[in-house]
Design a protein around this nucleic acid. Sequence first.
DNA 1: TCAATCCGTATGTCCGGACAATCGGACTGC
DNA 2: GCAGTCCGATTGTCCGGACATACGGATTGA
Lengths: 245, 245
Amino acid sequence: MSLDLSVDRSSPVPLYFQLAQQLEAAIEHGALTPGSLLGNEIELAARLGLSRPTVRQAIQSLVDKGLLVRRRGVGTQVVHSKVRRPLELSSLFDDLEAAGQRPATKVLVNTVVPATAEIAAALSVAEDSDVHRVERLRLTHGEPMAYMCNYLPPGLLDLDTGQLEVTGLYRLMRAVGITLHSARQSIGARAATAGEADRLGEDEGAPLLTMERTTFDDTGRAVEFGTHTYRPSRYSFEFQLLVRS
Amino acid sequence: MSLDLSVDRSSPVPLYFQLAQQLEAAIEHGALTPGSLLGNEIELAARLGLSRPTVRQAIQSLVDKGLLVRRRGVGTQVVHSKVRRPLELSSLFDDLEAAGQRPATKVLVNTVVPATAEIAAALSVAEDSDVHRVERLRLTHGEPMAYMCNYLPPGLLDLDTGQLEVTGLYRLMRAVGITLHSARQSIGARAATAGEADRLGEDEGAPLLTMERTTFDDTGRAVEFGTHTYRPSRYSFEFQLLVRS
DNA sequence: TCAATCCGTATGTCCGGACAATCGGACTGC
DNA sequence: GCAGTCCGATTGTCCGGACATACGGATTGA
């Protein structure tokens, strides 16, 4: 059994991170079965030639991911359930691509407009000041799945329509050095208006899933505000929550 | 400015936790303004008579909460935005109570039924084996807001109808020593059926917000499976996401 | 037979120190 | 004026050790 764990001290990758990756791989791969004990930290550290704090840091990162559970006086064991997909701030595009859906994007509008009161408040800019407005339609298998309207403060990045059609908004932001930090999100439902129904290929009054989101970078600056509508027959929000303890 | 931080070494509360609480309070209270530097760890440790690892542990916990951002070579600063409510696994009851809504609960059904295939799969029990079934209506201001149908494996806890009407399901679980760990969740929308419309006081075909959830304890055992429907005019899911980096 | 106590074990907390990596500004050279 | 370089500041990583705390089983006692 006892897994061939090893670390490469000449690597620039932190030792605790190397260990964490190997443990995670072992769990994923099934070498560490759910419910099994991990063996005590002291001995594990000795076996790897690491100090206990380093081993603890590796284990802690997996505990934070929900893969392991520690019990004082007992040990550390692999969580039994199939925890896999923690909720993260990812773009719809990345989500779909990861699911192998090969999403297509159609940019309907890519322009600059004066900010309404709502948008100005969300982005912390002056009312009527210029903001980017991007309207996109996301399709899977040739069928519309979501209508997305996003606003961005000016000067943040130049939105190239061509790029927006082949990748996601978040990826473009990261590419220009914006460090995403957090997002405030609201998920609801409502009946489709005539315009929405038309865009998404639904009937007027049909139920739609809605999402509103404001995203902040690590300086606290709002970098994006968006209102999205989804066809509930083709999309739902799936995620896993961890209890913060 | 320089905040009167102090720790009580005779307290059973861990030192890093005391410090984290004080820092969080200072941020909340405004004593530490957004964007301001926190001062280097070494000096902070010296000032408090703590070691640097302890100070780092305190700071790290706030970084994990999204309140602080560290930058190598620069320092640690307070996040600018109003991060407040990270997404956590809380019950609807607790959410509403925290919002001062004084929720009321009406237990419609509290019985034991044989598990259907779907429920058996979610709870990892044998098909047709006995499971608890609880149907509840959640009301705010005398108006129905959500219809909740939950299933629990047998022998976990005895569901008292009276208790279910004055507190939430999760609180009852915690009270009997169940450590909630994670939940798999799915949020969608659909048109109300005649029965749903009737229960919630909506019209048939009206859009409803739906949520399905399976909750696991820290041994990986499924402890609850529920399907909920919400009136979108009275409820939406609001939360804050952090980028895991 | 059952309950209370003891004890080994493993994690939780904390210390003090060392060196590396990175950021940003100051300085220098072209 | 501008680009490249140097350097101080600060966090990131890692070590080895110490004691506290809690869990669970074994032992002990009623």
